[in-house]
Design a protein around this nucleic acid. Structure first.
Length: 645
RNA sequence: GGACCCGUAGCUCAGCUGGAUAGAGCGCUGCCCUCCGAAGGCAGAGGUCGAAGGUUCGAAUCCUUUCGGGUCCGCCA
């Protein structure tokens, strides 16, 4: 066998320059530093062969060379487009180049045969022992298999960031799961990742929240017999409390949910009647006190929800603190210094002019210079900062902390906000720092085939903890990753707990449970003993297909991370589980294909090694998704273990 | 009026950043399953990738136009 780290020293230096990521990764690889990836290894081989054939070829000409498994397995194990991609710059017809390349590649120790095909493809059939040699690599690496070499990139992933004005609901849940899995994925791909939560604790909404907490506190004090006209009125007509208070305070109350009653009670218990003046209006400072307590209690609840979901973020950033620290003013000064800030008046949005539209002069940011559709307001007409301006402060803070790449997971309703934020990050960092925004589309929850309403006003409001109670944390996390995040999704409460082929949560867990069952039956051999097993008996096409799937794991991680698409991990695991179940099922029809056969100790060891390696990759993938692998499944209908007896 | 997302088999969805004859599950059809590892298994049918142009060796994928669905759209957050 030939490992990637053995290939690297033979590469011409030019290759390392053209593909820095691969070049660097290969150069760093050592025995024991297991980031083996047969696709990257073979690609390096192909490029090295090209360099020998065409010494004059500019290195960048090979940038688009790929080595991938062909769709049709009858074409071989791998196919490369090298001849077609390089033909033009090299000035050689693709078939001719392919033939020459085939001769070179056929001589490699990994390659059984290389045959040109079609318009210039080169199909490679790999030696079975090279394919099999992936198994001990996987077993020795354990769940670190697929871990990318350190990229040196510092990535900040901000997700959830639900306003601290109430419990989390299923919409937040999708963002939380996608963000957490994406952060895990980026870490798996070799980036240094920080998981961040941005608390929107400044602005009108949290002020309204504080006011609602005061309302609830007033109700509690009234019930406790506090003296005063307002409390008398509340006692006289408890059902009219909201209207009574709105009239007394001259405001419109928001956040009527019951979840603020405990906040009001805590507030009343702590500050008592001092919260209100003689007229029953909030005393000076009471609004701030109520707001801070309410935010704090809501954040406690949100953190508990996140913990129940298995999400643990590294850092929580307070919007109010950042503004107080002067980041907003500093951000504005930076933009101003670049001539990107001016006084002006925005056009009304076409086709949807608000009734009360009137032109107003404000402080604006020239986001159009960075691809936005219109310039954006930094300050309201009264001079105070907009939400966007506060977000500038937030992003400046991230840039200051030295991140190379920023990633946000937002709900689709923030789609219109992406361009201006990218513009802002580009302007603040002189385009050194990138910003990627992953938008998650709406989740429709179904129960008994009927949509479940999620309105905050409706009584049937589904919170995150309701959802976790109903189907379990792992089912929630896995299911939320079974769709591309920019596609809408139906979350069928009945489907996700169903034990059948069309429930991927079950299907993947079941594969792992079966693997554990086999290994237990074999006395749980350790990875070292399995890694030493001779593997020549693994020659069945289905076995080799499973090995190739396993070998594709590092590449899957790298591609999914680059695309910021954690759902690919769920699909990969579903495919991997399918390959494994296929083998298992065949053992049912043909006893000679069973994993454990007492009369054939050698082939048993080889198959156990394959089974164990499959389990390693399943666990590695589930770790990225934040799903717990199970030792066994239980059938509630039978009350028995799902293990084969 | 504008921005962003989606449109792929009867249904729900993948499609590895441009590759060869477009895949999976469900559903459907047929066969297998009295004993063996069946909360099943095997096989088959099913597609002008919403439409029309363009880019090139090559397009579901990139560009333009267009149709349908969804999210949004001055100082809210």
């Amino acid at each position: 066998m030939v490992c990637a780290h053995q290939v690297a020293p033979r590469l011409p230096p030019a290759i390392g320059r053209t593909r820095q990521r691969h070049g660097a990764a290969l150069a760093l690889r050592q025995p024991g530093f297991l980031t083996m990836d047969i696709f990257a290894a073979l690609r390096a081989r192909v490029i090295a062969a090209l360099a020998e054939l065409l010494p004059e070829l500019p290195p960048e000409a090979t940038a688009k060379v790929t080595v991938e498994p062909p769709r049709d397995p009858s074409h071989g194990d791998m196919a490369t487009n090298a001849a077609m991609v390089v033909a033009k710059p090299a000035g050689i017809a693709p078939p001719k180049l392919a033939a020459a390349l085939a001769e070179k590649l056929a001589a490699l120790p990994e390659v059984e045969s290389a045959t040109p095909a079609g318009p210039g493809f080169l199909n490679l059939r790999l030696r079975a022992d090279y394919v099999r040699a992936q198994i001990p690599e996987v077993l020795r690496a354990g769940e670190a298999f697929g871990q990318g070499a350190a990229t040196g990139q510092r990535v900040n992933v901000e997700y959830v960031s639900a306003n601290p004005t109430g419990p989390m609901h299923v919409g937040h849940c999708r963002g939380a799961v996608v963000g957490d899995a994406l952060a895990n994925l980026l870490a798996k791909a070799g980036h240094a990742v920080t998981k961040e939560y941005y608390i929107n604790d400044a602005g009108a909404q949290v002020q309204a929240l504080g006011q609602a907490a005061l309302w609830r506190a007033a109700e509690v004090l009234a019930a406790q017999g506090a003296a005063g006209l307002l409390f008398d009125a509340l006692r006289a007509a408890p059902a009219e409390a909201r209207a009574t208070i709105e009239a007394a305070w001259g405001t419109t109350l928001q956040y009527g949910g019951e979840y603020l009653v405990p906040v009001g009670a805590a507030l009343a218990a702590r500050d008592g009647a001092a919260l209100f003046d003689a007229d029953g209006r909030p005393a000076p400072g009471a609004a701030d006190a109520a707001r801070m307590l309410a935010v704090s209690m809501m954040m406690t609840e949100i953190r508990a929800d996140l913990a129940a979901l298995g999400v643990q973020q590294d850092i929580f950033i307070s919007e109010a603190e950042r503004v107080a620290a002067g980041d907003l003013d500093r951000a504005e000064a930076i933009l101003n210094g670049k001539g990107l800030v001016y006084r002006g008046t925005l056009e009304p949005p076409k086709g949807k002019t608000p009734d009360d539209w009137e032109p107003r002069e404000q402080t604006l940011f020239r986001s159009t210079q960075f691809g936005d559709d219109t310039d954006r307001a930094l300050r309201k007409s009264d001079g105070s900062g907009t939400y966007f301006a506060n977000d500038l402060a937030n992003h400046l803070h991230k840039i200051d902390r030295g991140f190379d790449a920023l990633v946000h997971v937002w709900g689709a309703d923030h789609g219109g906000y992406v361009k201006r934020m990218k513009a802002a990050v580009a302007a603040l960092s002189d385009s050194r720092v990138s910003l990627d925004v992953v938008l998650t589309q709406i989740v429709h929850v179904l129960k008994n085939g009927e949509p479940v309403r999620m309105s905050k006003r409706a009584g049937s409001y589904i919170t995150l903890s309701d959802l976790i109670d109903e189907v379990g944390r792992d089912a929630v996390r896995f299911t939320m990753l079974t769709r591309k995040s920019d596609a809408q999704m139906e979350f069928d409460l009945d489907r996700v707990v169903e034990q059948s082929r069309d429930n991927p949560v079950f299907y993947v867990q079941y594969a792992h449970a079966r693997i554990r069952s086999v290994l237990r039956a074999a006395g749980d051999p350790g990875p070292d003993s399995l890694a030493a097993a001779p593997l020549e008996t693994l020659s069945d096409p289905a076995e080799l297909a499973l090995i190739r799937r396993i070998a594709a794991w590092p590449r899957t991680v790298e591609a999914a991370a680059a695309a910021r698409e954690p759902h690919r991990i769920a699909f990969y695991l579903n495919d991997l589980a399918g390959d494994f179940h296929l083998l298992w099922n065949r053992g049912r029809d043909d006893a000679t294909l069973r994993f454990i056969r007492a009369e054939e100790p050698q082939s048993t060891q080889a198959r156990l090694a394959l089974v164990a390696a499959t389990g390693v990759v399943l666990r590695s993938g589930m770790a990225v998704m934040g799903v717990t692998p199970v030792e066994e499944l239980r059938d509630e209908r039978k009350g028995e273990s799902a293990e084969p007896a």
